Simulated assay, not measured.
Amino acid sequence: MGVDPTGARDFYAAVFGWEFRREGSRGYHLILLGGEIVGGLGPSPAGPRFGSAWSVYLAAKDLDAAQLRAERHGARVLAGGVPAGGNGRLSLAVDPVGAPFGLWQGAHDEGVVLVDEPGALTGAALHTPRPGDSAAFYREVCGAHPSTERADVPRWVPSFGVRGTGAFGNRARAAGARSLAPGLFADPWGAVFAVTEPSVAG
């Protein structure tokens, strides 16, 4: 999600070849690759103060119960039970260490369809200054066992598949991205993402 959706669509179309399909009237777009859903892009339900960032959503069979568990374990809810058209409901929160995250209760069996291919999601890592505390929180809230990396800035970082990280880096920097570390980038609005060679060739 970003503060400049038009610019973000242009950037990610250039670096990943994504296409976008508008959903509803609130500026939300499905992200498509080869006609398959790989994500979504739109304004934050929490408003502009949330800035520009990738949000990682964790599946919840019962959104209200998961949100309540998150609050009981120290999370701060920014937006709760927000309808996403006919696709489901979501909540946005900040975990006790300071990483924003989402909870998603889908109305359909399928969400993101394409994974582990170039241009698609290959995983997500939780950057946190306190890996043990962060991992314990997500286990208690939704039974997740996140991959954690020790870092000063707490945040979830999605990873997308590419063919050749070096060539991708050149393309991303030409489009306005900044390299933060090998395989780690910030888009022109500051949203951080990673790239990796996918385990399955697309």
Results as ranks from 00 to 15, higher is better:
Ala107Thr: 08
Val141Glu: 00
Ala107Ile: 02
Gly123Leu: 00
Asp95Gln: 07
Ala99Pro: 14
Pro129His: 07
Ser147Thr: 11
His108Arg: 00
Ala125Asp: 15
Ala135Glu: 03
Val141Gly: 08
Leu103Asn: 04
Gly102Met: 04
Tyr138Cys: 07
Arg130Tyr: 09
Pro146Gln: 06
Ala135Ile: 05
Leu126Met: 07
Gly119Ala: 11
Leu121Pro: 08
Tyr138Phe: 15
Val115Asn: 12
Thr148Tyr: 05
Glu117Ser: 14
His127Lys: 03
Pro96Asn: 04
Gly98His: 10
Val141His: 02
Val112Cys: 13
Thr148Ala: 07
Phe137Tyr: 04
Gly102Asn: 05
Glu110Leu: 04
Leu121Gly: 12
Ser134Asp: 09
Pro100Lys: 04
Ala136Thr: 00
Arg139Cys: 10
Cys142Ser: 12
Val97Gln: 15
His145Ala: 14
Asp116Ala: 01
Phe101Asn: 02
Glu110Cys: 05
Gly106Ala: 02
Gly123His: 09
Phe137His: 05
Val141Ile: 09
Val115Leu: 09
Gly111Lys: 01
Val113Lys: 03
Gly111Met: 11
Val113Tyr: 07
Ala136Phe: 09
Gly119Ile: 06
Ala107Tyr: 05
Arg130Asn: 09
Ala124Ser: 11
Gly143Val: 14
Ala124Leu: 04
Pro129Thr: 00
Glu110Val: 13
Ala120Asp: 04
Gly119Arg: 06
Phe101Ile: 06
Glu117Val: 11
Val112Gln: 10
Pro118Glu: 03
Asp133Val: 13
Ala125His: 03
Val115Ile: 07
Pro100Tyr: 01
Pro96Asp: 00
Gln105Arg: 01
Ala125Ser: 15
Val141Ser: 04
Asp95Gly: 12
Pro96Ala: 06
